[in-house]
């Protein structure tokens, strides 16, 4: 089986610092592999465990430094990796991104059975690229995958989370699976895995290599654009309570619970 895992490098958003002018200080920001994508890779590795002739290719789009995320994925055990990197790809929204990834898959990778992606990326949190990619490749998509339960004879079975239900879907391959965290048991790479990964190849491809249409990539190919970006405002009392805090907490709770009783009486 040939599996493509789509990976995104994201800034560690837990650790953002602001300048006096309210701009994000980008220098020194640590980039990590999107945590959901780690699980996507692990899910692929779990399939490989039972089907040893499985080949796992990582695919990412981003600047040159995104190689770090791919190197991490290779250390986890993926076989090879492709980074789509070109100035003409930058500023892409999910619409342009999914078309660019689809071009690389259709025109360069060509042969594949399964695509696994994280359900979300923790920076943008749009959850759109995976389903959009399935549209452009004209293959089925399973979203909010909790667990991949079976894969054989050109079919895959997976449990998907829904509002009040968990549905088990079966679909033919090729297909796109968007996975949640904890869909697999994560095994962090060891030092020897990092060393072994250094011999693995990361192919870097540009717009011409993947025969993409310039008008469909980057800012040009993005129907959405940012009009304004700003720091979220906080408007809270910020009252510090040093003494009698138990009374204070219960006061607010009783205020709320009391209201409810009143409306019930009415």
């Amino acid at each position: 089986m040939k599996i493509i895992v789509c990976v995104k490098q994201v800034p560690d958003t837990n650790d953002v610092k602001w300048s006096k002018e309210n701009n994000i200080i980008r220098e020194g920001l640590i980039n990590i592999i999107n945590p959901y994508d780690e699980y996507a890779i692990q899910a692929a590795l779990d399939i490989k465990k039972f089907n040893p002739d499985t080949k796992i290719t990582l695919l990412s789009m981003g600047p040159n430094c995104a190689k770090d995320a791919l190197e991490y994925g290779l250390s986890m055990g993926a076989d090879d990796a492709i980074l789509l990197s070109d100035k003409r790809f930058s500023g892409a929204d999910t619409c342009a991104t999914s078309k660019t990834l689809a071009s690389a898959i259709k025109n360069v990778i060509k042969d594949f059975d399964l695509i696994i992606t994280g359900q979300f990326a923790i920076d943008g949190d749009t959850a759109q690229t995976g389903p959009s990619l399935s549209y452009h490749l004209n293959i089925p998509v399973l979203t909010y995958v909790k667990k991949i339960t079976d894969s054989k004879e050109g079919k895959i079975t997976a449990m998907c989370e829904r509002e009040n239900e968990v549905l088990t879907f079966e679909t033919k391959l090729p297909a796109v699976l968007c996975v949640l965290k904890n869909c697999a048991e994560l095994k962090k790479p060891r030092i020897e895995d990092y060393i072994r990964a250094q011999t693995k190849r990361i192919g870097i491809l540009n717009l011409d290599d993947i025969q993409s249409i310039p008008e469909e990539t980057g800012i040009k190919g993005s129907p959405t654009f940012v009009q304004r970006a700003f720091r979220p405002e906080v408007n809270r009392w910020c009252k510090k309570v040093k003494y009698d805090y138990i009374k204070e907490i219960l006061l607010h709770i009783r205020e709320e619970n009391g209201k409810e009783e009143k409306t019930e009486q009415q």
Binding site: P11, T13, N14, V16, I24, I122, D123, G124, D125, P223, T224, F225, V226, Q227, R228, A229, F230, R231, P232
Partner: peptide, 13 residues
């Protein structure tokens, strides 16, 4: 966006 650190106002063409 940006893990909630930044608010972005987005328009669509």
């Amino acid at each position: 966006t940006f893990g909630g650190q930044l608010m972005a106002t987005i328009l669509c063409k």
